[in-house]
């Protein structure tokens, strides 16, 4: 209990006193996570809509692969990216290993199947007759998709919340492809692992409170947006 209180106190002090390293790590965490979830949304939502509404040979296999991807261990994703980005690897010339871009790439790989899979499920559940009715209302193709996205708003937000949760919690791949380099690729999750390995449980707890606080605020905001105007 004392340890928890100490951690909470330290987290508070770190923020109030403006510990520059903590601020830098927190900002990097936010930047990396937001970029990753943004990319996953931009790819995953249209891909999910396409998979949910269309029928083509190989679609089921694609859905199986996406579902497998939802449970992909981040360490495995990290290993693949490391091999790809390694100096002698196929993408070694890009010199991306141990950069924030590599962490973003890893986070996209673990969150994209979640956003795509959950969006696709939401669109598969739509009543075929509703699609016909919207078309019959005189909707253009773009209007058609906007209406459908509004109808599946709850599920799409759930997909984003789940994807964001995965991104924020991810540590294995970030550690592997980012290297937890001070001032360059250190983020909150990798810092916590490092502090625990050093035996600095109070600092690790303080960082975990900051991470939980951020996750809470963002999830609360997304849930608020999701549930907006669902009254009367």
């Amino acid at each position: 209990m004392d340890l928890l209180l100490e951690g909470l106190k330290q987290a508070f002090n770190m923020f109030i006193n403006g510990d520059p390293e903590i601020w830098e790590i927190t900002l990097r965490t936010l930047k990396v996570s937001f970029t990753a979830i943004f990319i996953s949304m931009m790819i995953g939502i249209p891909a999910g809509i396409f998979l949910g509404l269309s029928r083509f040979p190989g679609r089921r296999i694609l859905l199986v692969l996406i579902n497998i991807g939802m449970g992909l261990p981040p360490v495995v994703a990290g290993l693949w990216i490391t091999i790809l980005l390694w100096r002698s690897g196929p993408l070694g010339d890009l010199a991306l290993l141990f950069t924030p871009t590599a962490i973003i790439l890893a986070q996209v790989i673990v969150s994209l199947p979640i956003v795509t899979g959950l969006t696709s499920t939401a669109f598969q559940q739509l009543d075929e007759k509703l699609l016909l009715q919207i078309k019959a209302l005189g909707a253009t193709k773009i209007q058609f998709f906007i209406i459908l996205m509004k109808e599946t708003k709850l599920a799409i937000f759930a997909a984003i919340i789940a994807g964001f949760g995965r991104v924020m919690a991810e540590v294995g791949a970030a550690m592997m492809v980012g290297g937890n380099i001070r001032g360059e690729t250190r983020i909150l999750t990798t810092s916590i692992v490092m502090e625990v390995s050093k035996g600095n449980f109070d600092v690790a707890l303080a960082l975990s409170f900051i991470l939980m606080g951020i996750a809470f605020i963002i999830t609360f905001t997304l849930t608020f947006l999701q549930q907006r105007k669902r009254r009367i």
Binding site: D127, G138, K150, E151
Partner: peptide, 20 residues
């Protein structure tokens, strides 16, 4: 589209959108 918009359809299920 302009021809489709001269038609209106009401189906057996009301299929209303999740709004007012």
């Amino acid at each position: 589209l302009e021809l489709r918009r001269k038609c209106a359809v009401a189906l057996q299920q009301s299929l209303l959108l999740d709004t007012s």
